[in-house]
Amino acid sequence: MKYKIPKIDLHCHLDGSIPPEVLCELAQSRNIKIPGGSLDGYKAYLKDTLNCKSLVEYLERFDFPIGILQDEEAIIKATCALIEMLDHQGLVYVELRFAPQQHTKNGLSQEEVLQAVLKAVNMLKDKCQIHVELILCMMNYTDASINMSANMETVNLAKQYLGEGVVLLDIAGAEGNNMMDFEPLFRHAKSIGLPYIIHAGEAGPALNVHQALKLGAKRIGHGVRSIEDLNVVQELVDTQVPIEVCISSNLNCFVFDEAVHHPIKTLQDKGVLITINTDNMMFSNTTLEQEYEILKSTFGYTDEDLIQFNKNSLMVAACDEEVKQKINHYFN
């Protein structure tokens, strides 16, 4: 562990960050075919992410872990493995996000999926330094009508467990140019006092960031394509709604072709509030420390800058003030 600073990740997908050793072990015990045929083959498959031809092909990498995480035991083991790995990496706080509806193919309800994740979190609460909160994701399949009912169930489930392990609602998936099609879901969330964040401005245009802000998002997942419209950048500056930057993931998903072309420094210089995150650790073959190395080698950021990025994350984290005060002690 090179960086001894307190590390915070606000944008970490559970099913995209599970250690491959654990996934392959779970797959073998469930007679599920492993991409590449073995653990080594799967690791090679993960390293081949850069050869994906599109975001859709990149998102297909979720099929394997999601296919495994369809029973309580698998969900608990995978979640425990991820939390222990993050704790070992020196993280003091993480908001893990996942879509409960993705794990109901073998009969679990969305609530049972959430309860399995919560069991894992609670099992490790006194064994690990890291503090874990959960974000429940709705799914964007480009056509809002496809899973409106399942998404509405996620909204109500997030509200039911708000403050009991869940801190936010989100929407993830194949972002298109249709953010306002999901307005009824966010309108309902707002009416019941459920805070939410929105994936926008990654695969979709700057317009989606504008719409996410209009819908009332507390944070923007990615948001980097706001650079395509300086009016949207100014909205981010004026509102100080933070963006969750995940550089390696942006490169893997073809948002930018090289790190040097990433707009993080330009956005920060214009006054946008930035946090640094991993997104999908296994699919992007990354960790927070590797993201820090990109920041330093490509943009000239310093260790003091890295500390400030983590302070930004703590400031906009969705946990309560008591937790924030506890974590803030790590910075002193």
Results as ranks from 00 to 15, higher is better:
5 I>E: 12
65 P>W: 09
72 E>S: 14
3 Y>W: 08
22 V>C: 10
4 K>V: 05
116 A>T: 07
263 P>C: 07
20 P>G: 04
124 L>V: 05
10 L>E: 02
68 I>R: 02
32 I>W: 04
13 H>I: 01
89 Q>P: 01
266 T>F: 14
166 V>L: 06
309 F>W: 11
229 D>C: 09
181 D>L: 03
50 L>V: 12
323 V>D: 06
24 C>M: 14
301 Y>E: 10
268 Q>Y: 12
59 L>S: 11
331 F>K: 09
33 K>L: 13
101 Q>K: 06
125 K>H: 08
321 E>Q: 15
205 P>D: 15
246 C>N: 12
214 K>I: 10
260 V>T: 02
33 K>V: 13
45 Y>R: 03
2 K>F: 07
192 I>N: 01
209 V>S: 07
26 L>I: 09
310 N>P: 09
36 G>N: 07
104 T>H: 07
70 Q>W: 09
161 Y>D: 09
44 A>M: 11
303 D>S: 10
286 T>L: 02
243 I>H: 03
242 P>E: 07
38 S>L: 06
138 M>A: 08
81 A>M: 00
42 Y>C: 05
196 Y>T: 00
5 I>W: 00
117 V>D: 03
62 F>H: 09
242 P>S: 11
170 D>G: 06
316 V>Y: 10
146 I>Q: 15
244 E>V: 04
158 A>N: 02
147 N>G: 12
273 L>H: 13
16 G>V: 06
328 N>T: 00
316 V>A: 07
201 G>I: 06
105 K>D: 13
253 C>D: 02
51 N>M: 12
320 D>Y: 01
95 E>A: 01
158 A>M: 03
4 K>I: 01
20 P>S: 15
89 Q>R: 05
331 F>S: 11
244 E>F: 10
212 A>Y: 04
276 I>C: 11
